[in-house]
Amino acid sequence: MISPWRKLREKGILGMNQRNADFIMPYNKRSHYPLVDDKRATKKAALKANIPVPELYGTIEIEHQIKQFQQLLKNENEFVIKPANGSGGNGILVIAGKNPNGYYRKANDALISQDEIQYHLSNILSGMYSLGGATDSAIIEYRVKFDNAFQTISYRGVPDIRTIVFRGLPIMAMLRLPTRESDGRANLHQGAVGAGIDIHSGKTTLGVCHDSLIEHHPDTGARIQGLAIPHWQQILEMAAKCYDIAQLDYMGVDIVLDKELGPLMLELNARPGLNIQLCNDHGLLPRLHQVENLDSIPAKAQQRVAMSLDIF
């Protein structure tokens, strides 16, 4: 009987302490965090580098602007409200349409009044969802119309693809599928399903929900394994390219697939979670060490992706 500690080590599982002490702290410069933490700055930098992102309708920075939030929408009835400095998917409000009686409809079909939206905006501004509770801004952006490829395995909400990028090389990826429990959000700790993606083929492998392995989506019942992710090559390149704008050696890139616009970069994460290891049934450590031992990293994103495909 080997100790569970040793077994995890042998499997190459990266733990929270080691992630913080050996990768985030030495590799990620603190001065590069603001660009990642502030979604507006991320968007701006991404557009400059020709990385497609969901269109920004507007930002709300002071309480006074809240009343006029509808003017920013340019007649769009579908939109997403996010805190600019939010974390962990908190404070995101997805509006899927407007009813003739003036109420808005949330992604889960619940109705929400204009007042309630304004209250939510005000909560965002007062810093309820921001890191450290500092005052924040709210952004209103395009609501992604998700690709039909995922229709069978997601329950209301937009699935996204999380890729861990280390020194500019995509090293592991997963598809995050909303469930009824996660209320349309794609965050694993809120109950979403994570499905590992084989970096080579771009096909889903295992599914994981709440730390345990599953084969079928808990709400739709569809099989998770073996689904080919459309535009896979492009997604990998986008993820690798994000390294150029963020300059963080260890980060997570979240990409969504839009029915019409293709892959869009949603956000970057300087402290990506560890569950990705479960659904890939593979620890991050061996891959991280391999990339650590590389002598030189190509400057071009395409070459880095090629390198990744070569190694893994």
Binding site: K7, L8, K11, G15, M16, N17, S212
Partner: peptide, 14 residues
């Protein structure tokens, strides 16, 4: 930098 006890539970699938 070792594993936390709760991580043993978290990664029990592995």
């Amino acid at each position: 930098t070792g594993y936390r006890l709760t991580e043993l539970w978290r990664f029990r699938a592995v």
